[in-house]
Design a protein around this nucleic acid. Structure first.
Lengths: 161, 161
DNA sequence: TATTGTTATACTCTATAACTATA
DNA sequence: TATAGTTATAGAGTATAACAATA
């Protein structure tokens, strides 16, 4: 159920709040993205790992967990699965043998490239009803909100609760 | 884990896509709203039921499920809980005794009023970093997106899958 | 002692399917 | 037969806590 994300086509008696719309449209974006990744045989979680390892090779599982805002135990099954499918490889760090260094395999890099293409397609589809100027406006407004809510240390962090 | 909603304060090497930002900020809005409802002893699901019954009294559970984009079985436990707490009451329809007619009790109406106040507060907090003009702009852009994606019958519906 | 990764477990949320009662 | 509501169950997704290996 979408409770707060309700998408009833009937018009509400009261005008929708912006925060409500934001949650609705944001949930739509997430859902559509998940559908796109699924066509590649990847979950959104897989996509997050591939994206980060593409940007930062040799990450440890602990670091990966921190950056994704989750716990190390969650990373284990994610990397297990990606390793089994040959997209990611673990090698022990030579300097600290507790750590793994995680890297994309060539196949993992291909998957990441495909992922970037569907992300681009997703972006295009989602914003198709906006003019380029409107899309740029939206981008800026969202960045203001993201910055305001993550950079204020007095507010609880979004990731990891 | 927020995978796609990752809120890593480190700047990404590539600029964030708007769809990504939308998912991030939307998830933030949902999470903050849930925190607000929790201070009233309500889940976001509870809030959805109260809001709809406030607007449309005498709804059946089936209708409620449809409007919230979920299945009837999900409504049962939600209404059970609200009924136990004295916020909602079930009465059998006199015209078709299969249906319930759901209504808010006076206490339910008070809770709904409180809910509206925290929703207003939530809205204010979330958008505090925008000027009124920017907030209005954001509202309009989001409405365009919401309309484009729900009114097109060729695209899968967001609610209910 | 502290940290990385692992396992086992549990919890939350939600959907599916079979059932009952009414129509 | 069809529909409203109910129950039992199961599946995602994710977190917690205890543990082994290494530092």
């Amino acid at each position: 159920m979408e409770y707060y994300h309700e998408m009833d086509p009937r018009r509400p008696a009261t005008p929708q709040r912006t925060s409500f719309l934001l949650a609705q449209v944001g949930a739509l974006a997430s859902k559509r993205f998940a559908e796109h990744t699924r066509t590649l045989g990847l979950t959104p979680g897989d996509a997050g790992v591939l994206r980060l390892l593409g940007r930062s090779p040799a990450l440890s599982q602990r670091e990966l967990a921190d950056r994704l805002g989750t716990v190390p135990s969650r990373i284990v099954s994610l990397v297990d699965s990606l390793e089994t499918r040959g997209l990611v490889e673990r090698s022990r760090s030579t300097t600290d043998r507790r750590n793994y260094e995680l890297r994309l395999t060539p196949s993992g890099q291909e998957h990441l490239a495909r992922l970037r293409r569907v992300a681009e397609q997703h972006e295009t589809e989602l914003l198709a009803s906006l003019t380029p100027e409107e899309a740029a406006q939206l981008h800026n407004l969202l960045q203001v909100l993201a910055a305001a809510h993550t950079l204020d240390p007095d507010l609880h962090q979004e990731t990891g609760r």
